[in-house]
């Protein structure tokens, strides 16, 4: 910093630590709840320090059939569903966006701007506002209770297309010119030059889209009616409802913990890339 101010420095750290405590409090409480047994979780006040049942709860939650008294898929199954959905959405979005951005930046063809605007419009139609008719389309196509139905309607997005477009525009024109003199045809240029040059952006976007996919809630809630297809994020709500009859907060909170670990892990593990991707994508 510009000048030396020991008191301000102490205040700085205090504020930041306080902020972290507030941000982390709900997660700490979740974690604590997941380390006690069912009985302890029914006595007020609830504990603020971890108990000894973490491993037991972990096993019970991951491989058991969830809450007793409700019919849910085992948690590992739901985790797999979430994983499939998140990966399909992320990979799908990246693939179709790369291709369309490539077409729009590197080709001159009829209706180019028309296609561009068509893609742009999707920016204005979040799934929440067109939920019913989209549901009908998916139902008519027989895609209810399938991974396709879960992911495909969510993979068209203008954001990713625009980001790749931006990335491609910053790649010097000479790359293409040089590749053309070297004899590269369009698709070869795409795979040999464009993809490797966009590698970091692809990775950053993957992080963001993985989280976006993993955290989908309303859409899977409508599309999946079979317990085998439920995602982990959805199951929390079902458990909360069940909790009104038989509260098993240790299991519910363990499930919540399991549901947030993969995306949190991805964000923290790929923090640098993710921050870069986020702040540069949305701008």
């Amino acid at each position: 910093m510009v000048e030396h101010r020991p008191i301000l420095n102490i205040v700085t750290h205090l504020v930041l630590i306080l902020g972290i405590l507030i941000v982390a409090l709900p997660i700490w409480i979740t974690f604590v709840a997941a380390t006690h047994d069912e009985a302890r979780m029914l006595q007020a006040p609830l504990p603020l320090l971890p108990g000894p049942y973490f491993i037991e709860n972990f096993k019970k939650t991951l491989f058991g059939s969830g809450l007793s008294g409700t019919e849910t898929a085992p948690v590992w199954r739901m985790l797999m569903n979430s994983l499939f959905m998140a990966i399909m959405i992320a990979v799908g979005k990246i693939a179709i966006s790369l291709l369309s951005a490539f077409a729009i930046v590197y080709f001159k063809f009829p209706f180019r701007m028309g296609f561009f605007w068509l893609i742009f419009i999707t920016l204005m139609l979040p799934v929440e506002v067109r939920i019913l008719p989209t549901y009908e389309v998916v139902a008519d196509l027989g895609m209810l209770n399938s991974y396709w139905g879960l992911s495909i309607p969510l993979i068209a997005s203008a954001t990713a297309t625009f980001m790749f477009r931006q990335v491609f525009l910053t790649i010097p024109d000479e790359m293409l010119e040089s590749a053309r003199i070297d004899g590269a045809k369009p698709m070869r240029f795409f795979f040999d030059i464009l993809l490797p040059l966009s590698r970091t952006n692809i990775a950053a976007l993957f992080v963001i889209l993985f989280i976006y996919g993993w955290n989908q809630y309303l859409w899977p809630l409508l599309i999946t009616t079979e317990t085998d297809m439920t995602t982990i994020v959805m199951s929390i709500k079902q458990m909360l409802e069940a909790a009104e009859q038989s509260p098993q907060w240790n299991i519910i909170m363990m499930t919540a913990l399991l549901a947030m670990i993969p995306p949190v892990f991805v964000v923290i593990g790929m923090q640098k890339m993710f921050v870069k991707g986020l702040t540069e994508t949305d701008k």
């Binding site: 930041l16 902020g19 972290i20 941000v23 982390a24 709900p26 997660i27 409480i29 979740t30 709840a33 989280i211 993993w214 955290n215 989908q216 809630y217 994020v233 959805m234 929390i236 709500k237 909360l240 907060w249 519910i252 909170m253 919540a256 549901a259 947030m260 995306p263 949190v264 991805v266 964000v267 923290i268 923090q271 921050v275």
Partner: peptide
């Protein structure tokens, strides 16, 4: 330490707070 709530699904955030 400050960014991870970003990764948490809204419904999960709701569940934590309601708890």
């Amino acid at each position: 330490l400050l960014i991870w709530p970003y990764a948490i699904a809204p419904v999960l955030a709701g569940a934590l707070w309601v708890f």
